[in-house]
Design a protein around this nucleic acid. Structure first.
Lengths: 161, 161
DNA sequence: GGCGGGTCGTTAGGTCCCGAACTATATGGT
DNA sequence: ACCATATAGTTCGGGACCTAACGACCCGCC
């Protein structure tokens, strides 16, 4: 994800610009990118990507499921899931098995090794997130999250507009 | 950027978890991803990616510059810039030329075609951003942005900690 | 002068993600 | 029973990003 930079002369260039709206979007993307990049770096020594960690987390919390369901939960395509599972299976963190009820489908389960990895992942990530957000009060955090919910609804709603 | 999903039993699984911190990070990434994905889709008919649009924007606002400087401004590596410029040059939106002062370096400039494209890009993006953020008051937007600044400082500061 | 240590852009190889097309299987309507 | 349609997972091609390593070039210091 690229890191958006406000042009110096933005106001002049688009006179009616709602600078605050642009700045809000820019800062959202920037904050997300900063967090996401650090998470990736922290997980690297464990041999998993951020996406891989999410897959392991789903399997740990909800038990074995199909690649399709995994894709729906993580909001990525089935093609992406195939790639993620290839990588995780190569490292022995998940196992694919046939689904007896539907011969098209598979069932993906987390392995014992995967369980130990996801536990480490969660410990690391949780510690970092807590530290990052420690500069806000509980009330500010709640405000921040509530604003995000409203913006997300707005973005989603603008699709069929 | 993957779309993070809060596990249903997160609280039980990590008893001391600061749920709010995790939710805050998750929502930041989710909002950013939603916005970023829509921006990419909106720009597609124009034949540019979001990253490509940022390159054009920098060149429009600051004039010709080296690939290195472009990389610094967008916070991507020089290798990435090479790829972006290859794509933009293929479409005739930017032009590479030799730098007479330094025979290692190049100077990248936006073409007239590129100028028309970046103008369309900015009109589209600005309209969307304004619509998305229209559900917040000016005061709320300012709060939202201020919270982002504090979180960004916190994340950046935690690097050498 | 020249030489070692930077910096320039590129290339090579890898990851994550997408859309589109393919194969195999399931299922509903007739 | 049969066929159209839909779904599961994979493959293929492509884009944006990274790190590492290259050859070319610049520069300060001996």
């Amino acid at each position: 994800m690229p890191k958006i930079q406000m042009p110096d002369d933005f106001a002049e260039q688009t006179p009616d610009a709602n600078i605050l709206a642009t700045e809000a979007v820019m800062n959202t993307i920037r904050t997300a990118d900063m967090a996401f990049e650090r998470i990736g770096r922290l997980l690297r020594p464990l041999g998993v990507s951020a996406a891989g960690g999410l897959v392991l987390g789903q399997l740990r919390d909800h038990g074995p499921m199909s690649p399709s369901e995994l894709g729906e939960r993580l909001i990525v395509t089935r093609a992406t899931v195939t790639g993620l599972l290839d990588s995780l299976e190569r490292r022995g963190l998940v196992a694919r098995s046939a689904n007896p009820d539907d011969r098209r489908g598979l069932s993906v389960a987390i392995t014992p090794t995967g369980l130990t990895v996801i536990q480490q992942v969660r410990t690391i990530i949780h510690g970092r997130e807590t530290a990052w957000m420690g500069v806000l009060t509980q009330a500010e955090l709640q405000t921040y999250i509530a604003l995000h919910h409203r913006i997300q609804d707005s973005i989603a709603g603008s699709d069929q507009a």
